[in-house]
Design a protein around this nucleic acid. Sequence first.
DNA 1: GTCTATAACTAGATAGAC
DNA 2: GTCTATCTAGTTATAGAC
Lengths: 201, 201
Amino acid sequence: MLNAFPPDRVSVSERIRKAAIVLFSERGYHGTPVRALATTVNIEAGSLYYHIRSKQQILFDNFERTMDDVLEGLRRAVADATGPEARLRAAVRFHVLFHTSRQSEAFISHAELRALTGQNHRRIVLKRDRYERMFCELLSAGVDAGVFRIADVKLTNIAILTMCSGVADWFSGGGPLTPDQVAEHYETIVLRLVGYADAAG
Amino acid sequence: MLNAFPPDRVSVSERIRKAAIVLFSERGYHGTPVRALATTVNIEAGSLYYHIRSKQQILFDNFERTMDDVLEGLRRAVADATGPEARLRAAVRFHVLFHTSRQSEAFISHAELRALTGQNHRRIVLKRDRYERMFCELLSAGVDAGVFRIADVKLTNIAILTMCSGVADWFSGGGPLTPDQVAEHYETIVLRLVGYADAAG
DNA sequence: GTCTATAACTAGATAGAC
DNA sequence: GTCTATCTAGTTATAGAC
């Protein structure tokens, strides 16, 4: 049987990227020496710099990729759904599944935001704000349509987002629940907390 | 008018502790050199070690103090309340107010858990687990009494806790809402998401 | 109780051989 | 494309003068 991508065909750059995701999520950016990255990909520290510009650049590239993917993913998820309930469900489902399937990257994307410097930090914060606004508009739409009862939309939005992003903190693939089951529960929970009329759960 | 504690009566140890809370929350434990602590309290780096054992000890002491206070606070908060609804309300209220009034400490207590070493880490995780169990029992009590409808108590518990702890991430004293108002909103949100019958909000 | 000086080590990053 | 060697700077922590 053909295998188009045997393990040793994976580029060193890609292996560095993956190693950084694991190490940054486990020990934090400042807690991870570049030598630890080098050891993980079985090269010497000096050799890393043939592939990377700086440690900060690895972090920023990971942020940008993750933010772009989550923004695009949310856009697609809600585009397929009609009506405030279905659209919010789709958004929560997507958000939760993203935070289980790309758990470490998602985790880094809020835990290590402080570690981004200057312009890097500003650029990522802008993308995060865009994501929050997209989510917030789903709530407002439901309120305007009279199907959600929300006292403070911005507060409820951030409450929902921190709750759903928290999945990246505690989810375990070896745990009792599959990503799908977690997503299902969170859909119910979120619909309840926005006061959706038919949210029996 | 007498002032029993003029600013310069505050011990250096105490000023180091406070400085660490601010710096660790802003830059992270690994992102904060001990020299930054020294600068903040206007002494030289070497002088710090007359007051502290190690940087790690500062972090651990802060964790232990914060965890002890939050555990004791939760115990008192629910002790004053009767019935599942009132007890859960009191718990959420306390949790949110703790995360606004002692925002930086609370923030560190989940953001920097990874930075604790060996036995320090294990001891704090045990306390965190105790807190989670105390909270979880409030949910179970409501389910047993037939006033909460919860499909998965453990999942709902962690969803609530991550949501409420998230307040330490985004709350701003200069923002539009007072701590009391945030607590009020969160009480409503939580009662809704546990399916409390009378949770009109 | 704070200082200066420094030990002992680690950090991120570069240079040049191969 | 990876190596070794190294630079410069920064790290936590200690020692001994004052």
